[in-house]
Protein backbone atom coordinates (compact mmCIF):
# COMPACT_ATOMS: atom_id res chain seq x y z
CA UNK A 1 0.00 0.00 0.00
CA UNK A 2 1.53 3.28 -1.06
CA UNK A 3 0.05 6.01 1.05
CA UNK A 4 3.28 7.88 1.59
CA UNK A 5 2.83 9.86 -1.61
CA UNK A 6 0.24 12.01 0.04
CA UNK A 7 1.37 15.23 1.69
CA UNK A 8 1.14 15.53 5.40
CA UNK A 9 -2.30 15.95 6.87
CA UNK A 10 -2.28 19.10 8.97
CA UNK A 11 -4.85 20.12 11.54
CA UNK A 12 -5.89 23.00 9.29
CA UNK A 13 -6.63 20.58 6.48
CA UNK A 14 -8.82 18.47 8.77
CA UNK A 15 -10.75 21.51 9.98
CA UNK A 16 -11.30 22.68 6.43
CA UNK A 17 -12.44 19.19 5.48
CA UNK A 18 -14.81 19.09 8.46
CA UNK A 19 -16.31 22.47 7.48
CA UNK A 20 -16.70 21.31 3.90
CA UNK A 21 -18.44 18.09 4.99
CA UNK A 22 -20.69 19.98 7.32
CA UNK A 23 -21.64 22.59 4.75
CA UNK A 24 -21.97 20.39 1.73
CA UNK A 25 -23.61 17.40 3.37
CA UNK A 26 -26.09 19.65 5.15
CA UNK A 27 -26.93 21.20 1.82
CA UNK A 28 -27.13 17.81 0.17
CA UNK A 29 -29.31 16.56 3.01
CA UNK A 30 -31.62 19.48 2.33
CA UNK A 31 -31.45 18.71 -1.34
CA UNK A 32 -32.23 15.13 -0.44
CA UNK A 33 -35.59 16.18 0.93
CA UNK A 34 -36.27 17.89 -2.36
CA UNK A 35 -35.22 14.81 -4.27
CA UNK A 36 -37.33 12.60 -2.11
CA UNK A 37 -40.40 14.71 -2.66
CA UNK A 38 -39.78 14.83 -6.37
CA UNK A 39 -39.12 11.14 -6.78
CA UNK A 40 -42.12 10.14 -4.68
CA UNK A 41 -44.24 12.56 -6.67
CA UNK A 42 -43.10 11.17 -9.99
CA UNK A 43 -43.73 7.65 -8.85
CA UNK A 44 -47.26 8.74 -7.99
CA UNK A 45 -47.46 10.61 -11.27
CA UNK A 46 -47.49 13.98 -9.57
CA UNK A 47 -45.27 16.96 -10.11
CA UNK A 48 -43.97 17.54 -6.60
CA UNK A 49 -42.80 20.98 -5.54
CA UNK A 50 -42.99 23.29 -8.52
CA UNK A 51 -43.58 26.82 -7.46
CA UNK A 52 -40.53 28.04 -5.57
CA UNK A 53 -37.85 28.60 -8.15
CA UNK A 54 -37.54 26.70 -11.42
CA UNK A 55 -39.04 23.22 -10.94
CA UNK A 56 -39.35 24.06 -7.27
CA UNK A 57 -35.59 23.96 -6.79
CA UNK A 58 -35.63 26.72 -4.24
CA UNK A 59 -38.13 24.81 -2.15
CA UNK A 60 -35.23 23.78 0.16
CA UNK A 61 -34.42 27.42 0.68
CA UNK A 62 -38.00 28.22 1.49
CA UNK A 63 -38.17 25.26 3.86
CA UNK A 64 -34.90 26.34 5.45
CA UNK A 65 -36.17 29.86 6.00
CA UNK A 66 -39.32 28.45 7.44
CA UNK A 67 -37.48 26.08 9.78
CA UNK A 68 -35.07 28.73 10.95
CA UNK A 69 -37.70 31.36 11.60
CA UNK A 70 -40.24 29.12 13.23
CA UNK A 71 -40.82 29.48 16.93
CA UNK A 72 -38.76 26.99 18.91
CA UNK A 73 -41.26 25.52 21.31
CA UNK A 74 -40.22 23.55 24.36
CA UNK A 75 -43.14 21.82 26.05
CA UNK A 76 -43.87 22.83 29.62
CA UNK A 77 -43.23 19.48 31.26
CA UNK A 78 -40.34 18.46 29.04
CA UNK A 79 -36.85 17.88 30.33
CA UNK A 80 -35.55 21.05 28.78
CA UNK A 81 -31.88 20.21 28.55
CA UNK A 82 -32.30 16.79 27.05
CA UNK A 83 -35.11 17.99 24.82
CA UNK A 84 -32.84 20.66 23.40
CA UNK A 85 -29.73 18.47 23.12
CA UNK A 86 -31.35 15.42 21.54
CA UNK A 87 -31.60 16.75 17.95
CA UNK A 88 -28.00 17.85 18.17
CA UNK A 89 -26.98 14.27 19.03
CA UNK A 90 -28.67 12.94 15.91
CA UNK A 91 -27.16 15.56 13.64
CA UNK A 92 -23.72 15.52 15.27
CA UNK A 93 -23.27 11.72 15.24
CA UNK A 94 -24.34 11.64 11.61
CA UNK A 95 -21.61 14.09 10.70
CA UNK A 96 -19.05 12.49 12.97
CA UNK A 97 -19.67 9.21 11.21
CA UNK A 98 -19.07 11.01 7.92
CA UNK A 99 -15.63 12.10 9.14
CA UNK A 100 -14.37 8.59 8.53
CA UNK A 101 -15.94 8.33 5.12
CA UNK A 102 -14.04 9.35 2.03
CA UNK A 103 -16.49 11.89 0.76
CA UNK A 104 -14.48 13.71 -1.87
CA UNK A 105 -11.09 13.12 -3.35
CA UNK A 106 -8.26 14.86 -1.56
CA UNK A 107 -6.80 18.09 -2.98
CA UNK A 108 -4.37 20.90 -2.14
CA UNK A 109 -5.63 24.45 -1.91
CA UNK A 110 -3.88 26.45 -4.60
CA UNK A 111 -0.96 28.65 -3.48
CA UNK A 112 -2.46 31.98 -4.65
CA UNK A 113 -5.22 31.82 -2.05
CA UNK A 114 -3.94 33.80 0.94
CA UNK A 115 -3.80 32.32 4.41
CA UNK A 116 -5.04 28.83 3.42
CA UNK A 117 -2.85 28.46 0.35
CA UNK A 118 -0.93 25.19 0.13
CA UNK A 119 -2.99 23.44 2.70
CA UNK A 120 -3.68 19.78 1.89
CA UNK A 121 -7.31 18.73 2.38
CA UNK A 122 -7.61 14.94 2.79
CA UNK A 123 -10.39 12.84 1.26
CA UNK A 124 -11.57 11.87 4.70
CA UNK A 125 -11.33 13.93 7.84
CA UNK A 126 -10.06 11.07 9.93
CA UNK A 127 -8.45 8.18 8.17
CA UNK A 128 -8.90 5.70 10.97
CA UNK A 129 -7.77 2.19 10.56
CA UNK A 130 -11.00 1.00 12.08
CA UNK A 131 -13.07 3.19 9.71
CA UNK A 132 -15.99 0.84 9.17
CA UNK A 133 -16.45 0.07 12.84
CA UNK A 134 -16.23 3.74 13.71
CA UNK A 135 -18.83 4.68 11.19
CA UNK A 136 -21.24 1.97 12.26
CA UNK A 137 -20.61 2.84 15.89
CA UNK A 138 -21.29 6.52 15.41
CA UNK A 139 -24.41 5.88 13.42
CA UNK A 140 -25.63 3.55 16.14
CA UNK A 141 -24.92 6.25 18.72
CA UNK A 142 -27.05 8.59 16.58
CA UNK A 143 -30.15 6.68 17.70
CA UNK A 144 -29.69 8.18 21.14
CA UNK A 145 -31.11 11.33 19.61
CA UNK A 146 -34.62 9.94 18.96
CA UNK A 147 -34.47 7.88 22.12
CA UNK A 148 -33.75 10.86 24.36
CA UNK A 149 -35.96 13.21 22.38
CA UNK A 150 -38.94 10.92 22.76
CA UNK A 151 -38.45 10.46 26.45
CA UNK A 152 -37.74 14.10 27.20
CA UNK A 153 -40.81 15.63 25.66
CA UNK A 154 -43.52 14.41 28.09
CA UNK A 155 -45.75 13.22 25.32
CA UNK A 156 -47.15 9.73 24.97
CA UNK A 157 -46.49 9.61 21.25
CA UNK A 158 -42.92 10.61 22.03
CA UNK A 159 -42.60 7.82 24.56
CA UNK A 160 -43.94 5.32 22.05
CA UNK A 161 -41.46 6.67 19.55
CA UNK A 162 -38.61 6.16 22.04
CA UNK A 163 -39.71 2.61 22.78
CA UNK A 164 -39.71 1.86 19.09
CA UNK A 165 -36.28 3.43 18.77
CA UNK A 166 -34.99 1.05 21.42
CA UNK A 167 -36.53 -1.93 19.62
CA UNK A 168 -35.05 -0.89 16.32
CA UNK A 169 -31.69 -0.24 17.94
CA UNK A 170 -31.65 -3.69 19.46
CA UNK A 171 -32.73 -5.33 16.24
CA UNK A 172 -30.58 -4.12 13.40
CA UNK A 173 -27.25 -3.46 15.12
CA UNK A 174 -26.39 -7.13 15.32
CA UNK A 175 -27.21 -7.69 11.67
CA UNK A 176 -25.22 -4.67 10.50
CA UNK A 177 -22.08 -5.89 12.27
CA UNK A 178 -22.44 -9.54 11.27
CA UNK A 179 -23.36 -8.81 7.67
CA UNK A 180 -20.27 -6.67 7.17
CA UNK A 181 -18.05 -9.19 8.97
CA UNK A 182 -17.78 -11.49 5.98
CA UNK A 183 -16.47 -8.80 3.60
CA UNK A 184 -14.09 -7.63 6.35
CA UNK A 185 -12.83 -11.18 6.61
CA UNK A 186 -12.24 -11.26 2.88
CA UNK A 187 -10.54 -7.87 2.75
CA UNK A 188 -8.69 -8.34 6.00
CA UNK A 189 -8.89 -4.69 6.97
CA UNK A 190 -11.35 -2.24 8.48
CA UNK A 191 -10.14 0.64 6.35
CA UNK A 192 -12.50 1.70 3.61
CA UNK A 193 -9.58 2.44 1.33
CA UNK A 194 -8.53 -1.17 1.63
CA UNK A 195 -12.03 -2.19 0.64
CA UNK A 196 -11.82 0.05 -2.38
CA UNK A 197 -8.49 -1.29 -3.43
CA UNK A 198 -9.67 -4.88 -2.95
CA UNK A 199 -12.27 -4.37 -5.68
CA UNK A 200 -10.01 -2.58 -8.11
CA UNK A 201 -10.35 -5.22 -10.81
CA UNK A 202 -13.48 -4.02 -12.55
CA UNK A 203 -17.08 -5.03 -12.12
CA UNK A 204 -16.24 -8.70 -11.78
CA UNK A 205 -14.24 -8.06 -8.61
CA UNK A 206 -17.03 -6.24 -6.82
CA UNK A 207 -17.72 -7.55 -3.37
CA UNK A 208 -21.40 -7.99 -4.09
CA UNK A 209 -20.74 -10.97 -6.31
CA UNK A 210 -18.77 -12.70 -3.60
CA UNK A 211 -21.06 -11.64 -0.79
CA UNK A 212 -24.59 -11.15 -2.17
CA UNK A 213 -26.16 -12.28 1.10
CA UNK A 214 -24.04 -9.80 3.02
CA UNK A 215 -25.13 -7.01 0.67
CA UNK A 216 -28.82 -7.76 1.19
CA UNK A 217 -28.37 -8.04 4.94
CA UNK A 218 -26.40 -4.82 5.00
CA UNK A 219 -29.01 -2.96 3.01
CA UNK A 220 -31.83 -4.21 5.21
CA UNK A 221 -29.90 -3.21 8.28
CA UNK A 222 -29.01 0.11 6.69
CA UNK A 223 -32.65 0.90 5.97
CA UNK A 224 -33.43 0.17 9.57
CA UNK A 225 -30.54 2.27 10.77
CA UNK A 226 -31.71 5.30 8.82
CA UNK A 227 -35.40 4.84 9.80
CA UNK A 228 -36.42 4.47 6.19
CA UNK A 229 -39.43 2.65 4.94
CA UNK A 230 -40.11 -0.23 5.45
CA UNK A 231 -38.67 0.32 8.93
CA UNK A 232 -39.87 3.89 9.64
CA UNK A 233 -41.38 2.80 12.91
CA UNK A 234 -40.12 5.68 14.98
CA UNK A 235 -42.29 8.35 13.56
CA UNK A 236 -44.91 6.56 11.58
CA UNK A 237 -47.64 9.18 11.52
CA UNK A 238 -50.53 6.80 11.03
CA UNK A 239 -49.64 5.05 14.27
CA UNK A 240 -47.80 7.37 16.60
CA UNK A 241 -48.49 10.84 15.13
CA UNK A 242 -44.88 11.76 14.68
CA UNK A 243 -43.22 9.52 17.27
CA UNK A 244 -40.20 11.02 18.92
CA UNK A 245 -40.56 14.23 16.86
CA UNK A 246 -44.10 15.00 17.92
CA UNK A 247 -43.31 18.01 20.06
CA UNK A 248 -40.46 19.37 17.98
CA UNK A 249 -40.71 22.38 15.76
CA UNK A 250 -38.49 24.68 13.81
CA UNK A 251 -34.81 23.95 13.40
CA UNK A 252 -34.66 21.38 16.15
CA UNK A 253 -37.08 19.28 14.20
CA UNK A 254 -35.04 20.06 11.08
CA UNK A 255 -31.90 18.71 12.71
CA UNK A 256 -33.42 15.25 12.97
CA UNK A 257 -33.95 15.38 9.29
CA UNK A 258 -30.51 16.59 8.47
CA UNK A 259 -29.22 13.71 10.58
CA UNK A 260 -31.47 11.23 8.79
CA UNK A 261 -30.42 12.37 5.35
CA UNK A 262 -26.74 12.50 6.37
CA UNK A 263 -27.11 8.91 7.52
CA UNK A 264 -28.72 7.98 4.25
CA UNK A 265 -25.73 9.40 2.46
CA UNK A 266 -23.36 7.55 4.78
CA UNK A 267 -25.09 4.22 4.19
CA UNK A 268 -25.10 4.86 0.46
CA UNK A 269 -21.39 5.62 0.53
CA UNK A 270 -20.67 2.50 2.60
CA UNK A 271 -22.70 0.30 0.33
CA UNK A 272 -20.96 1.78 -2.69
CA UNK A 273 -17.50 1.42 -1.23
CA UNK A 274 -17.85 -1.96 0.46
CA UNK A 275 -19.98 -3.83 -2.06
CA UNK A 276 -20.06 -1.93 -5.33
CA UNK A 277 -16.46 -1.36 -6.24
CA UNK A 278 -15.79 1.96 -4.54
CA UNK A 279 -14.20 4.77 -6.51
CA UNK A 280 -12.22 2.68 -8.92
CA UNK A 281 -12.39 3.77 -12.52
CA UNK A 282 -14.88 1.84 -14.53
CA UNK A 283 -13.79 1.58 -18.06
CA UNK A 284 -13.62 5.11 -19.40
CA UNK A 285 -15.56 6.53 -16.45
CA UNK A 286 -13.52 8.34 -13.84
CA UNK A 287 -13.58 6.97 -10.32
CA UNK A 288 -15.09 10.08 -8.75
CA UNK A 289 -17.97 10.03 -11.24
CA UNK A 290 -18.52 6.33 -10.80
CA UNK A 291 -18.82 6.59 -7.04
CA UNK A 292 -21.27 9.50 -7.32
CA UNK A 293 -23.41 7.35 -9.61
CA UNK A 294 -23.23 4.46 -7.15
CA UNK A 295 -24.09 6.65 -4.16
CA UNK A 296 -26.92 8.21 -6.12
CA UNK A 297 -28.26 4.78 -7.00
CA UNK A 298 -28.34 3.60 -3.39
CA UNK A 299 -29.93 6.91 -2.35
CA UNK A 300 -32.51 6.50 -5.07
CA UNK A 301 -33.12 2.95 -3.96
CA UNK A 302 -34.16 4.22 -0.54
CA UNK A 303 -36.66 6.62 -2.08
CA UNK A 304 -37.84 3.97 -4.50
CA UNK A 305 -38.48 1.50 -1.75
CA UNK A 306 -40.39 4.12 0.19
CA UNK A 307 -42.67 4.66 -2.77
CA UNK A 308 -43.26 0.96 -3.32
CA UNK A 309 -43.34 -0.92 -0.05
CA UNK A 310 -45.45 -0.91 3.06
CA UNK A 311 -43.77 -0.80 6.43
CA UNK A 312 -43.50 -3.53 9.01
CA UNK A 313 -44.60 -3.67 12.62
CA UNK A 314 -42.00 -3.31 15.41
CA UNK A 315 -42.46 -6.93 16.44
CA UNK A 316 -42.01 -8.07 12.84
CA UNK A 317 -38.80 -6.05 12.62
CA UNK A 318 -37.44 -7.64 15.78
CA UNK A 319 -38.52 -11.10 14.68
CA UNK A 320 -36.99 -10.55 11.30
CA UNK A 321 -33.65 -9.29 12.59
CA UNK A 322 -33.11 -11.79 15.36
CA UNK A 323 -34.70 -14.88 13.99
CA UNK A 324 -34.11 -14.58 10.26
CA UNK A 325 -31.36 -12.16 9.40
CA UNK A 326 -28.96 -12.89 12.25
CA UNK A 327 -28.89 -16.67 11.62
CA UNK A 328 -28.41 -16.03 7.92
CA UNK A 329 -25.59 -13.58 8.71
CA UNK A 330 -23.91 -16.06 11.03
CA UNK A 331 -24.21 -18.82 8.47
CA UNK A 332 -22.81 -16.45 5.85
CA UNK A 333 -19.80 -15.67 8.06
CA UNK A 334 -19.22 -19.37 8.74
CA UNK A 335 -19.48 -20.29 5.07
CA UNK A 336 -17.16 -17.43 4.15
CA UNK A 337 -14.64 -18.70 6.73
CA UNK A 338 -14.82 -22.26 5.37
CA UNK A 339 -14.40 -20.99 1.84
CA UNK A 340 -11.37 -18.89 2.90
CA UNK A 341 -9.80 -21.84 4.71
CA UNK A 342 -10.45 -24.14 1.81
Amino acid sequence: MEVTVLPEVTWLGVVIKAVIILAIISAIAGFGTYLERKVLAFMQRRLGPMHVGPYGLLQILADGIKLFTKEDIVPQNANKLIFQVAPAITAATAFIALSAVPVFPDFTIPEFIPLLGGTFVPSMAADLNIGVLFILGMMAAGLYGPLLAGMAQANKWGILGSARTAIQFLSYEVVTGLSILAPIMLVGSLSLIEFNDYQAGGIGSWMMWQQPVALILFLIAGFAETNRTPFDLLEHEAEVVSGYATEYSGMRWGMFFIGEYANMITISVLAAVIFAGGYNDLGFLAGWFVIILKIAFFFFLMLWVRAAWPHVRPDQLMWLCWKVLMPIAVINVVITGFVMMA
Partner: peptide, 13 residues
Protein backbone atom coordinates in the same frame (compact mmCIF):
# COMPACT_ATOMS: atom_id res chain seq x y z
CA UNK B 1 -43.90 -3.23 -6.27
CA UNK B 2 -40.61 -1.67 -7.22
CA UNK B 3 -41.33 -2.32 -10.86
CA UNK B 4 -44.78 -0.73 -10.71
CA UNK B 5 -43.59 2.45 -9.08
CA UNK B 6 -40.68 2.77 -11.47
CA UNK B 7 -42.95 2.20 -14.42
CA UNK B 8 -45.32 4.89 -13.25
CA UNK B 9 -42.45 7.27 -12.81
CA UNK B 10 -41.30 6.64 -16.34
CA UNK B 11 -44.83 7.01 -17.65
CA UNK B 12 -45.20 10.26 -15.81
CA UNK B 13 -41.91 11.72 -16.83
Amino acid sequence: GLYVTLREMINAL
